[in-house]
Design a protein around this nucleic acid. Structure first.
Length: 161
DNA sequence: GCCAACGTTGGC
DNA sequence: GCCAACGTTGGC
């Protein structure tokens, strides 16, 4: 994946914690609190400024793709790992040797209504290999193939019009 | 609330 | 390095 061209992603968030509406209000946010090595490595190694991201609502009444954002700053040490009062505090991390990283993301669009997971499942043939649709897939940051990304964008457009 | 699937931890 | 036990994720 580590090319200089644009990559595409899906990032999960529980809307009760941070929703697409929150991002549209803030415009930009540091994607902190990721505590999974695979997700971290995607941020460090593969996420480029300008990469587009589906903002996914998980663990909620209607899980699905709730909007679009993009990487506005490359990965930097996640400050929450140093914060004793944070849920994301990590006693093993030091400023010289941070463990966790975060990219900054910028709001682009809110999808209204969101594109439900149940709707995406109807296209499992066309979306073959999309991590989101794979059984047991819990990764909070997932790569999305360009063809899948464009197809899903089209679904959103058709759904809204 | 249930539970399958997964990642992490820690004893050996 | 193995693997059982545990904690977490997340759809339903």
């Amino acid at each position: 994946m580590s090319s200089s061209t644009q990559n595409f992603w899906l990032m999960k968030s529980e809307p009760s914690v941070f929703s697409i509406a929150d991002l549209s209000r803030k415009k930009k946010t540091l994607w902190d609190g990721v505590r999974n090595y695979q997700a971290r490595n995607f941020m460090i190694n593969d996420m480029l400024v300008g990469d587009e991201i589906f903002f996914y609502h998980s663990s909620c009444e209607v899980p699905g793709i709730a909007g679009l954002c993009r990487v506005s700053q490359k990965a930097q040490p996640d400050p929450s790992q140093f914060d004793r009062k944070s849920d994301y505090f990590d006693s093993k991390a030091t400023k010289d040797h941070p463990i966790w990283f975060a990219v900054e993301v910028e709001f682009l669009k809110k999808y209204e209504p969101l594109l439900p997971l149940s709707e995406l499942r109807k296209y499992h043939d066309l979306l073959q290999g999309l991590p989101l649709l794979q059984k047991g897939q819990r990764l909070s940051i997932q790569p999305v193939k360009q063809e899948h990304f464009l197809f899903i964008k089209k679904l959103v457009t058709n759904m809204i019009s």
